[in-house]
Design a binder for these strands. Structure first.
Lengths: 135, 135
DNA sequence: TTTTATATGAAATCTATTATCGTTACATGC
DNA sequence: GCATGTAACGATAATAGATTTCATATAAAA
């Protein structure tokens, strides 16, 4: 039941919010642009405005329900926050996105930050390349 | 003498290109938006169009004279390629930017890309945190 | 020089996103 | 269950960053 998540985040349970959350949860891909979500909802016969999709995604981000990624395309990509941290591999040809988590890199980052006198709050690692299909 | 770099890159030696290169080399900050560069040139009394700044930066990127970074803000940031690859530490409080290079992380990235079937073209690692002064 | 291809600036265009504003609908109290 | 105030909505206008267009200017080859 998603409406609990919305209430918990201090957001009124409205049709667009529920539909967008549902769409994100039921989709088989994890990364979506605002435009993607908008079109998917239209295809499902839902009447939602594009402005609302942007608004709701920003609210979801504030409520830590989704994460906004800035890949190289110039358009923001949104991902549902379910569980663990991971980083991304992005194909520069077809746009495919893979995920990975590497303990060694994580630890190395901690070490570097410590050396430079930083207290880590977050980090962002994107590897760009051509995927197996596009090579 | 920068004109050699331009010729080497197969670019005609024109006033805007020379001025932009000079500006990047003489600036005390390493990261610039296109808009920044445009305004800096105007302040120096140079007549250069914004479109030209964008065009030239893109050409410089193709020629590996500069690197284009996509930070959180969504707008592109350009950095002169002088010497070696490095990644960034960004202070979330004061905006300070430090640089680092870590061989272990570099190698680990290669390994991961290989495992996932990717041929790396580039990567982008930003660690966010609070720097020593802001802690 | 003269020529020729390339680069330029100004303005138009495009794309992603945000703001505005009159209308609609959620949820709380009656 | 219904009224009512507040928050959210959708359509559209506006903005910001970046790119394209096109007539003109200019670097460098002949």
């Amino acid at each position: 039941m998603e409406s609990k998540d919305l209430k918990k985040a201090g957001l009124k349970v409205t049709m667009p919010r529920v539909k967008i959350l549902e769409m994100l949860e039921n989709s088989n891909t994890r990364h979506h642009t605002a435009e993607d979500i908008y079109k998917a909802l239209l295809d499902m016969g839902e009447e939602v405005g594009l402005a609302t999709v942007y608004r709701v995604l920003t609210q979801f981000e504030s409520a830590s329900l989704v994460t906004r990624h800035h890949f190289e395309s110039g358009q923001a990509v949104f991902e549902l926050n379910q569980g663990n941290h991971h980083d991304h591999l992005v194909c520069v040809k077809c746009g495919r996105v893979d995920e990975f988590y590497d303990e060694i890199i994580e630890q190395q980052q901690m070490k570097i930050a410590k050396e430079k006198g930083y207290a880590i709050t977050d980090h962002n690692l994107i590897i760009y390349g051509t995927c197996a299909k596009c090579t």
